[in-house]
Simulated scan of single mutants.
Amino acid sequence: MWRHLASNTITFLIVGLAGAAGVIAWGVNAYSDEGPLEAAICLRVEPGTNMRSVSARLEEQGAIGSASVFRIGAEYSEKAGQLKAGSHLIPERSSMSRIVDIVTRGGASTCGTEILYKIGVNAVLAEVRELDPATSNYTELAEFDPTAESVKIPAEYQSMRARADTRYRISMAEGVTSWQVVNALNALDTLEGDVEEIPAEGSLAPDSYEIAPGTQVGAVLDRMAAAQAAILAEAWENRAGDLPLETPEEALILASIVEKETGVGAERPQVASVFVNRLRQGMRLQTDPTVIYGITEGEGVLGRGLRQSELRAETPWNTYVINGLPPTPIANPGRAAIEAALNPATTDYVFFVADGTGGHAFAETLAEHNSNVAVWRKIEAERAAAQN
C-alpha cells in the first residue's frame, strides 16, 4: 500500500513538474513572440504610473495577450522598476519583450505631441503637431508666428507646453541669415537668455535640433556653429582639385551664393560650376542675391524686386561691381550647397537664367544665354497677362 501510494505521489510530481515546465515554456514564448497589435499605438505613461496599470492598458488596447505574462517578463528581466514617463510609440506586432524595452528605455518621447519651431527665409512659425502612430505622419493642431507683435498664443500650444512629454525641435532652413536665426531664437519662450551678438554669417548649420525647455539661446547657437564647422571641415578635406578657392572661408562664401541662387537641390552642382568657371576666367559673378545682401545686410527680407540703381550701387557684396567673391557669406548654406561648392559639376557653363519651372537654363555662350533670357521674358509676360 505504501509502495503504491509513493508511486502515485512520484507520478503526480512528475506530471506536475512537466506541467509547470510547459507553462514556463509557453510564457517564455508568449513574451518573446510577435504580438497581436494590428496597428501602431501611442502609449502615454504618466509620471508615477506602475507596470501593473501599464500592462492592463496594453491588454485592453490589444497590444499584448496577457498582462500577467507581461509583468512577469518585466520582473524577470529586472526592468519592472525602470518604467519611464512619456509618450511611447508601440509598433504593430511588437512582442512583449520589445514593448518592455520601449517603455523602460527613456530618452525623448517617440510619439505624441511635438512643438516644432521652423526658422525659414520668409517666416518663423511655431507648429503644434501630433503624431498619428498608424501612419507615422504628423497632424497640425495649431500654428502661429512667435516673432510677431501682439501675437495670440493658441490654447493648444499652452496646453502642450504644460505636458512633461512634449517634444521640442528647432528646424532651421537653408539660406537663412544669422540675424534671422538669432531674432527667431530670442523670441521663443521655450528658450532662455537672449543673445545680442550675431554669429558670423554662414557659421550656423541648417538642420533640425532637439531642445529642452529652459535651454540657453547661446547653447543652441553653439550647437549650430559646431555642426557647421564639422560639415565645412569634412567637405574641405574632400574637395575637388584645382578650385579657385584658397580657404574654407572662401568655400563657405561661394556655398552661400549657390544656396541663395537655387531651390532645386539637383542643380546645385551646376550652379556652383557656373561661379567656379567665372572665377577661373576672371569674370564677375553678377548674382542678384549678393546685391540684396548688400542692401539688407541679412536683416530681414527685401520683399521686392531689385532696381537698376541698386544693381549699380557700390557695396562690399555687390558682385556686379566687385571682382571675385564678396567679403562674407550672404546666408547660412546647408551641407549640400557646401559640398556642391567644393565639388562642382564639370561644365563649361558661365551663364544661367530661370527657366519657368523653378530651375534654370544654363549656357556656355552669351548667344545661348540671350536666347534663354528671351524665353524667360516671354514666360514672365504670359504670367503677368494671366494675372490681369
Rank of each mutant, 00 (worst) to 15 (best):
R3T: 12
T9V: 15
I10K: 09
I10H: 01
A18F: 11
A21T: 10
V23E: 10
V23C: 13
V23S: 10
V28G: 03
N29P: 00
N29Q: 13
Y31G: 07
G35I: 01
L37P: 03
C42Y: 01
R44F: 14
R44Y: 13
R44T: 15
V45A: 09
P47C: 12
P47M: 11
N50A: 12
S53C: 03
A56C: 02
E59I: 00
E60K: 15
Q61N: 14
G62R: 02
G65C: 08
S66W: 05
A67D: 14
S68F: 14
V69Y: 10
V69F: 14
R71P: 07
R71I: 09
I72F: 04
E75K: 08
S77I: 05
A80Y: 04
K84L: 11
A85D: 06
S87F: 06
H88V: 06
I90W: 01
P91V: 08
P91W: 08
S94G: 07
R98K: 15
I99E: 09
V100I: 14
D101S: 13
C111H: 09
T113N: 13
I115Q: 09
L116A: 13
K118Y: 13
G120F: 07
N122S: 13
N122P: 04
L125S: 14
A126Q: 04
R129I: 06
E130Q: 13
P133H: 00
P133A: 07
A134S: 11
T135L: 01
A142E: 10
A142L: 02
E143R: 15
F144W: 10
I153V: 15
M160S: 12
M160P: 06
S171H: 12
M172L: 15
M172G: 00
E174W: 03
W179G: 00
V182K: 05
S203L: 06
S203M: 09
L204T: 02
Y209E: 00
I211Q: 11
I211H: 12
A212F: 13
V220P: 00
V220Y: 08
L221T: 03
L221C: 04
M224D: 04
Q228S: 08
Q228Y: 05
A230R: 14
A233L: 01
N238R: 15
D242A: 12
L245S: 02
T247C: 09
I257S: 13
I257H: 12
I257M: 15
T262G: 07
R268I: 01
Q270S: 11
Q270E: 12
S273F: 09
S273I: 08
R278C: 01
G282E: 08
T290H: 08
V291W: 04
V291L: 04
I292D: 08
I295E: 05
G298H: 08
E299C: 04
E299Y: 09
E299W: 03
S309N: 12
R312V: 01
E314N: 10
N318T: 07
Y320M: 03
P326M: 00
T328Q: 03
I330M: 00
A331Q: 03
A331T: 00
A331R: 03
P333S: 07
G334Q: 04
R335L: 12
R335N: 01
E339Y: 04
A341H: 05
L342A: 07
L342R: 00
T346D: 15
V353I: 05
V353F: 07
D355P: 06
A361R: 11
F362C: 01
A363H: 00
E364Y: 02
T365M: 00
N370Y: 07
V373G: 06
R377N: 14
E380P: 07
E382G: 05
A384L: 11
Q387E: 15
N388F: 05
